[in-house]
Design a protein around this nucleic acid. Structure first.
Lengths: 152, 152
DNA sequence: TTATAAAAAGACACACATATCTTTTTATAG
DNA sequence: CTATAAAAAGATATGTGTGTCTTTTTATAA
């Protein structure tokens, strides 16, 4: 469904938000470690979302990523629009170049309903709401490690 | 969502089914013309679905593609399982390697609901049901050409 | 002012999906 | 039996997503 770029972007932003609440500004290497993603590629993804203005960054010693306006909520939809492009929620599920109610593909109506429900979902979910779940230990940002002792 | 391979596969199978009803066995070049897909690649896609037994083919003069058991319905799910793989409906929307109700990602429950609704859709829709819509001129297999005279 | 730490940027590398082209196999028509 | 028509198979090409590595820029600490 969503590409790796989008997945890493969302997971990174959730991690950044959680760390920001603790007064920290994580760098991309720390982020990659904590969301279980490839370090260099995560840096590239963070460049994309930073250029798009979804998050802020500081270069140099003590720098890292952070939300300038922590109060403003950021929906997953806004992230997806940046990483997947605006067409993502407008493409025909059948692959037709043009497809609408007037000139539909054979699964148009049913597919639009599913696509709309996914749109509503990512429009409703925010980096903040996901972060809240993680902070409350109701969800995880990476697979749980299977270690001998879970001291970390 | 679905890849080009899957899109061409479904559109091809619908076209084959419609032509079969008319007593015809179309070849991949004719199919590609009528579903607006690249000829050679469509041939490759048809090799995949034929090897998987979703449709039959005959080599040689007068050959082409056809459904051996036209009465048996073929769901889009069966096609997707062949062209996208069985994992398609089991992947975490967040990108986690393992994700379930016991150890969920932050959007697990909501995402599973959307994924399930798409699963139900493609499990319910069949090549036959789509073909029926097209035959009744309620839907199209390719974008309508904008020609000076629509004589074709 | 110099050393250091961090993101940004650029150049590659690799895998896979997508696509094209050529050759081989197979069935049928004549 | 030969020519023809068709799918199957193989080789190659192209584009995009994914990922790595190196260099550059920038901010801070000392």
């Amino acid at each position: 469904m969503l590409g790796k770029t989008t997945e890493y972007a969302i997971r990174s932003l959730v991690y950044i938000y959680i760390q920001n609440l603790k007064g920290e500004r994580p760098g991309f290497k720390e982020i990659a470690r904590n969301i279980d993603s490839p370090e260099g590629f995560t840096g590239k993804v963070l460049q994309i979302v930073t250029r798009a203005g979804l998050v802020s960054s500081m270069k140099g010693r003590g720098g890292g990523f952070f939300f300038d306006n922590s109060e403003k909520s950021l929906s997953l939809l806004e992230v997806i629009n940046v990483t997947e492009g605006q067409e993502f929620f407008h493409k025909c599920g059948f692959g037709l170049k043009s497809c609408d109610a007037q000139n539909p593909c054979p699964m148009h109506d049913e597919y639009v309903a599913v696509r709309q429900s996914f749109y509503s979902l990512v429009n409703r979910l925010t980096i903040q709401s996901l972060a809240s779940k993680v902070s409350q230990n109701k969800a995880v940002l990476k697979r749980l490690e299977i270690t001998e002792s879970s001291i970390d």
